[in-house]
Design a protein around this nucleic acid. Structure first.
Lengths: 202, 202
DNA sequence: CGTATCCGATACACCGATGTATCGAACAGG
DNA sequence: CCTGTTCGATACATCGGTGTATCGGATACG
């Protein structure tokens, strides 16, 4: 059995191996891409055999999903946190600075993230989940932006805070692509900051 | 032999099968993703056997590269064309309209394109090629934007026509991601238009 | 029409990965 | 410490894909 809500015993060892498998999988996925990775490779990297794998997951898909959601949740919290540090009124410029500073722009993570994107783009079920995740993130950002002390600062073309939040995500996605190719993190941060200021204080 | 500059004979049949293989590969790649596709699947979809394949390509990588560059070149021409239709002076608003109208936003193509992106992101050699392609496209856009009759129309934050072109590409990439997930082409077009106007006429 | 060449189908040998079934060892609970 | 349960290693059968070598038919050209 792989995933059972009914935990017979608490099993301490199991959690360790599961975590080890996930961490090893991240490295392997980042290196070769989800599509080109075999179960054996993951096990070898983690120092286990397939027995351990099949005892914890039903297949690569399940592991991949678990891996992604785990890390994505973490990052979403980071972004929310960067926006949340303000008082009741939001200073857009300061928020932009904080976000671009704190945002995790790790090449390996971007690789896995994009792998997951194409995976989701082919599976409506997975796409649904990912869309909801993105919608929640946008909602958070929109809420913060709505508290801006100068509402007219947001360009009207975008259509309010909702549109602005959408634009923020789009900018992030756009920067991601370039960063995936040139691997220049510093430039990406600067560029993201430019884009965001152009979009939010236009 | 697979790729020889010295064409012994002109060979008409060969070109057909090669084209057939490429077209079939596009469908198969779009459906399952580059990483999950076997040579046999491509051959079967095209109505050939592996013999034909190995006679035309050295492996899946080469075919994938050929497939991508072929279509990417086509699209780049479309975009350039949309910008080029103007007279000596560029009407930014009109150009944005044309681009968003003409731009190919086919879901299958976006899938393949993104697959190729992650592929390139892991292979510096391929990444180089892709970066150059993107740079050429940006250059074209920047040239057009520089001819705008009202230069001050471009937001200063972006840093001139170069920056603006960069922003256009980023916006396109950003919209691509959302479109991959929700498959709403009409919305994507409208959204892209909003983004571009916000960026270029800020 | 003849023929030399090319192209792609067929057959073959070879992994590598998969999933399952079984077994010994580790571990929590008493 | 003892014991029943759980976890993960090992062994096995199987399958699908790979790449190559060879052969027959198609095709361009004289």
């Amino acid at each position: 059995m792989a995933v059972d809500g009914t935990a017979g015993r608490v099993t301490r060892r199991r959690l360790r191996t599961r975590a080890n498998l996930l961490e090893a999988a991240f490295t392997v996925f980042a290196g070769k891409g989800f599509g080109h990775v075999s179960i054996e490779e993951v096990c070898e990297a983690a120092g286990y055999t397939r027995g351990a794998f099949y005892s914890n997951f039903t297949g690569l898909d399940e592991l991949f999903f678990a891996l992604y959601t785990e890390r994505a949740e973490l990052i979403a919290e980071q972004v929310s946190g960067a926006f949340a540090l303000d008082g009741p009124d939001l200073d857009v410029t300061a928020a932009v600075d904080r976000v671009t500073d704190v945002l995790l722009l790790d090449h390996d993570w971007l690789l896995v993230k994009t792998d997951f994107l194409v995976h989701a783009a082919r599976d409506p079920e997975v796409a649904r989940g990912l869309l909801e995740h993105r919608a929640r993130l946008r909602r958070t950002i929109a809420d913060r932006l709505a508290r801006s002390h100068d509402h007219t600062a947001l360009p009207a073309v975008l259509g309010g805070a909702e549109g602005a939040a959408h634009a923020v995500v789009a900018a992030y996605d756009g920067v991601t692509v370039q960063l995936l190719l040139d691997r220049d993190v510093a430039r990406a941060r600067a560029w993201l900051k430019q884009l965001l200021t152009a979009l939010l204080t236009g």
